[in-house]
Design a protein around this nucleic acid. Structure first.
Lengths: 216, 216, 216, 216
DNA sequence: GATGAATGAGACTTCATTCAT
DNA sequence: AATGAATGAAGTCTCATTCAT
């Protein structure tokens, strides 16, 4: 799985995109990320961001012209680059495995990505919250994530089903169940404020999904 | 299902709480509910609420002294009254059934509550969003929902497990899986803007949970 | 000239347009007018307007949503209503005079309008300044004033020329000379800070224009 | 017209003032001139100046310590040097002519100076606008231009009047009429965005002034 | 009770100016 | 000399809340 070593978090992605981003701008992005995740975008003031980042308020606006641009700078790479690449790399990884069982697939999907999910939970939280509210963001995510899931994940599911490893459930429902189970686990860990719990529960998730998606 | 006839939506619950809630105040609550769900609490102005409710801005403040009180008026009954009663009524319903199978339980849980969930999705959406942000609300929900789930749902699960109808999974994980599967379905319907899809997918949910929670 | 008694200044015009404009809003408009004329639009802060008007800063924004709208509220009536009506009334007045001489026309134009010009000098000053800078305003003035001058003033000039009372100069040049001579007088009075001088110099203006526009 | 060959525009004048003005500083001044004329001083940012000049924002401050100094650098030479010299050279030119007629004087004044006026219209525009707003600038212009006009132009006018070539109008009114007529023509050309029109209309201006200033 | 004008604290944003590199 | 990131004072604007009518 060397091909995964270069998986970076969404946050690093923003940094990488502009690799001569000054230190203070990085602090601004980091502070924004934390505060948006903690308090929500709308409840975070640019003054708070400046204070947390240890810069003047004007500095917050140096690169990103508005508060909305700051949000976009954090979310866009996640939606347009990180998630797609993650899916793609996952599909590549799966292809290298011969006679993949359902459980192997789920284990690869969940355990191998736990670190990534924990790293990016802050961005994910912001993303989910803002998707509830912003039509444009919802559209953008749908347009980006939808096709990629179909192209990368669905063929794998079809193959599994042919090998009698997967129940006769529509692919989109399989996706819904897997994503939902993982997401709920993340959500619960967040509500409990206990992120260790997230990975501790991973075996239960694999077990539950393994049985739920088994053919009759 | 006569025991369900008096299940009211959270919104009606607020109304019922105060029999002489003036018509204009009801309009204010209704407008708040819709707008908070559409745009989020922080992005909704009291002016918007007043306009949508067809009243003056001052009228919004007649009964509820602050915007936060307005939010509380919508969320509190849901958390402290509606959900507990729903759980209680569900437990009662289950107790009347002899030799309950896992599938019967899930069907009762999902199909019988579909209407309720659809009705109250707006409040639920607001609730989830605000729980992400407000510690106090998160605490309050935990303190209210937690014990009730343990008292009403867990005994039923224990009983099922004794009847070899349920996998050897901790009760909290069972709860997480069931709630998560339903919630994800709701979330997806909301993101798609297609609420009919929600109930159409119910049979798949039951099937998935039925297998996922089955003992080995 | 009873038909002129109802000529109102541009400022009164704004007031009249919305005759239930609250007192404080009138104060805001009055303060804006004075300050914009004194210091220019761009150099005037909303804080200054609020202070001069004796209201809170928020009040400045109650009716006019932006500082630009405030400017438009002051200028638009001048451009679209006051000036056109002034031209029209002037034309009407001229038509009632038989065998009008050039000097009579100029006297009517200048002396009768002196009060009006003095009253509206503040708006005029703002208008000239902003026209130098804003393309849209320039367009708007051109589109409004141009046709009206052609329809009302040019026929009178043609008639005068037939009566051998006016030089063989294109009508637009006649307009340029008359308006320019009056405007320059106003400008000079403003630069000197001496408005009494404006009307004292009126006889010289009439004399100068009378000769300058006489046929050979 | 050899005496005119050394008439330089105000802008060149600033440049000449400091022989070793670095190229970048010249670009800054040129950019400032254009932008101030286009958008007004208050609406022009130092960032815009830097961009237009093709330099960094810090460079704008190398020679001129503040934005106001930049404005002064453009306006002061015009007021204190260019206009006085222009008047002086004009007076010299007039003195060389024997038995000067009114029309000759006007022709010399207008036609010979057309190029200069067109070249310096940008500075003039800025000057007029800022004079409307800044008391100190108004004072400065009055103190500089006033005496010079009296010393150079008034003797010529007195001489003309003795030769029965000029109406019995106070000298300051003659000045007002001439300057106003020329200025209005410039203003109109600017509002129309058609500078060719300016010189095309020159013959009309000469004719109009010639008659308007003729003795009875 | 209802209204909506008024308030003012505080949010977002701009921009002239400084200064380390 | 030049750069451009950083600054922070000050500007524009928003909006929950109050209160006279």
């Amino acid at each position: 799985m060397t091909e995964n070593t270069d998986i970076r978090t969404a946050f690093d992605q923003v940094m990488a995109e502009d690799h001569d981003l000054p230190a203070k701008q990085k602090q601004v992005l980091a502070a924004s990320l934390t505060l948006f995740a903690e308090q929500g975008f709308a409840n975070t003031t640019t003054k708070q961001i400046a204070d947390r980042a240890g810069v003047a308020e004007g500095t917050v606006y140096r690169r990103y012209k508005t508060k909305d641009e700051l949000l976009a700078a954090l979310l866009k790479p996640m939606v347009t680059q990180v998630l797609p690449r993650l899916m793609h790399e996952f599909a590549q990884q799966v292809k290298t495995m011969q006679h993949l069982t359902r459980r192997q697939l789920l284990t690869a999907l969940i355990e191998n990505r736990v670190a990534f999910l924990e790293d990016n939970w802050q961005v994910g939280k912001i993303l989910i919250n803002e998707m509830m509210i912003r039509d444009d963001l919802r559209q953008s995510v749908m347009l980006n994530a939808g096709p990629i899931i179909q192209k990368t994940l669905f063929p794998i599911l079809d193959q599994l089903r042919e090998q009698h490893e997967l129940a006769a459930i529509p692919n989109d429902m399989v996706g819904q169940f897997v994503i939902g189970t993982v997401l709920t686990n993340l959500l619960r860990a967040n509500l409990q404020g206990d992120f260790a719990a997230f990975s501790q529960r991973a075996p239960y998730l694999i077990d539950f999904l393994d049985r739920g998606l088994a053919p009759k």
